[in-house]
Design a protein around this nucleic acid. Structure first.
Length: 510
RNA sequence: GCUCCCGUAGUGUAGUCCGGCCAAUCAUUCCGGCCUUUCGAGCCGGUGACUCGGGUUCGAAUCCCGACGGGAGCACCA
């Protein structure tokens, strides 16, 4: 029986079998292991040392989303245990960026507020013989780690270690560190007696000069997750080698062990996320700051016109896999466009304007809707016989061509002058099929420059053309728009940043 | 170099833990078509993938071994 015959036979016997069922994509995150509804606790632990970017957003959104999914609790924890790197401004900046993102936390605290607890646990480790004070030089420590060799400090008895620990609080910075007695022979370099605490003299943005001995990430990351009741801490893949340390520390301390999980770092093509790459761009004036719309910082994305919800949906489509991938920005744009489409007001913006004189044009006042289908209001425009149309479209016109001024009437081209000016004649109101429909402005317009954020890096090199601008005329009505994303018809979505005579527009995407 | 992680269409992603319902999901890109007073959105359709080689099994994207490829870590940063 041939395929067609089989189909026909099936059609008569059981037609329902011919319909291919479509499985609906489930956008929610996969189930968590060891999760109990109402008992899940997650946390987002940024270090207040810079502005949050899309990578942080991924972590924060996933953490928050899981807490909601299981009716649990979500904690914002500032991991501020290195006073040399952190500064006051970032605590609030990070919180406000998270609020903009729509991430809401149930609790918030600073790791630096718990140093006494860390000291207490450090002393427990010391007295148990699980930690020691090492006074070797940095180079010696490094060499010994490489050679898998224990140093003399390690074998001193706990009582001596405790004495050395007390002395650390008065010792000059750099002269001693507290190390975990791990496994110096381990293949995992992270286990070769990692540092638990060190001396730092810098003033802390919150604690001031109260402390000099600061615990490290390996120590407090594990302790804080456990102490604060976090059940499902997430971190990015580069910490995977430290998992063993994490659990070992908790094990020696007799503390509860959370279900630790990892996901890959989020990378977007041409958009650097690291301060190492961004800082020089700012210093050299190649970007305007951390809120430059070409940057994937939350501030940059916001300025560009990205909706927080788009970032959330995008992050959720990425999920929690460990596969490292580089996404192109159009994935984010597509989501953003769908969100923006029903709520962005439509305006006319004419890039590279060319003058159009219409013979027989009526002087009239037209009312144009801000949106073709949604009730977003409207604006009025008075028209006479002078218009401006886009240069790119004008260059395709020739004498005799019929086109339409969108939402107005048809025009037939009579002639085109040397200077580019187009002379045409009014050619009826009815919509003619298959004609160009052009956006237009009248003589009563505003000059506008649109910044088009491009990729900052192409093939690993700074892209000199990342800050393209398009100049043109916009209809007057844009003057009443403040900090809003609009759609310039046939041009693209743009965020209008300021009002008055100084309008800035950023091209969000097509 | 050592250790660890990861390899599903152009790009992402679901499925991999607990092998069969996978003739492999969804999105995006691209290409058609429809609709439309926008080159947008929407609707319909199409192209397109389990890195390779062995093994286990009645049956492998899924389990095992190896190769190859990519990434990460090897701090008194987080």
């Amino acid at each position: 029986m041939g395929l067609e015959a089989q189909k026909a036979a099936l059609e008569s016997l059981a037609p329902e079998l011919l319909e291919r069922k479509k499985k609906a994509r489930n956008y929610s995150l996969p189930d968590l292991p060891n999760a109990v509804d109402g008992k899940v606790v997650t946390r987002f632990p940024p270090e207040p040392n810079g502005y949050l970017h899309i990578g942080h957003a991924k972590a924060a959104i996933i953490d928050c989303e899981y807490a909601r999914k299981y009716n649990g609790k979500f904690i914002l924890r500032y991991d501020d245990t290195n006073p040399e790197k952190e500064s006051k401004e970032f605590y609030e900046a990070q919180a406000s960026d998270l609020r903009w993102l729509g991430v809401e936390w149930d609790e918030e605290y600073c790791t630096s507020s718990r140093l006494m607890r860390h000291y207490e646990l450090a002393e427990q480790l010391i007295s148990q013989g699980d930690a020691y004070v090492c006074s070797c030089s940095g180079d010696t420590i490094k060499g010994n780690r490489f050679d898998r060799r224990e140093c003399a400090c390690r074998s001193l008895p706990p009582a001596d270690q405790m004495k050395r620990w007390k002395e650390m609080f008065l010792a000059p910075a750099g002269t001693a560190i507290l190390r975990l007695k791990g496994d110096i022979k381990s293949n995992n370099t992270a286990m070769r007696d990692p540092t638990l605490a060190r001396i730092i003299d810098a003033e802390h943005p919150v604690q001031g000069k109260k402390y000099r001995v600061w615990p490290t990430y390996d120590f407090v990351g594990a302790v804080e997750d456990s102490d604060s009741g976090v059940t499902h801490p997430f971190r990015t893949k580069e910490y995977e080698l430290r998992d063993e340390v994490y659990f070992y520390v908790l094990d020696r301390l007799g503390l509860r062990k959370p279900t630790l999980m990892e996901f890959s770092r989020l990378a977007i093509e041409g958009m650097p996320v690291s301060k190492r790459l961004i800082k020089p761009l700012i210093d050299e004036g190649r970007v305007t700051g951390y809120d430059d719309p070409r940057l994937p910082t939350l501030r940059g994305l916001r300025r560009r016109g990205l909706q927080p919800e788009a970032i959330r949906q995008f992050v959720l489509t990425q999920g929690t896999s460990k596969v490292e991938s580089t996404v192109t920005f159009d994935q984010v744009e597509a989501i953003n466009r769908k969100l923006l489409d029903p709520k962005a007001k439509r305006f006319f913006f004419v890039p590279s304007p060319v003058r159009l004189i219409v013979h027989g044009a009526p002087n009239s006042k037209v009312t144009l809707r801000f949106h073709p289908t949604e009730e977003l209001g409207n604006r009025e425009i008075e028209t006479s016989h002078v218009f401006f149309i886009p240069g790119a479209d004008a260059s395709a016109l020739a004498a005799g061509t019929l086109f339409r001024l969108k939402d107005l009437y048809n025009v037939r081209v009579d002639r085109i002058e040397e200077d580019g000016t187009i002379y045409g004649s009014h050619a009826g109101e009815g919509i003619a099929p298959d004609t160009l429909k052009l956006q237009w402005v009248t003589e009563d317009h505003v000059a506008l420059t649109v910044s088009k954020p491009g990729l900052l890096f192409v093939d690993g090199k700074y892209n000199e053309n990342s800050a393209e601008t398009v100049t043109g005329y916009a209809e007057k009505a844009v003057l009443c728009v403040h900090d809003e994303v609009v759609q310039f018809e046939r041009f693209g979505f743009c965020r209008i940043e300021s009002c008055g005579r100084q309008i800035k527009a950023f091209y969000t995407h097509k």
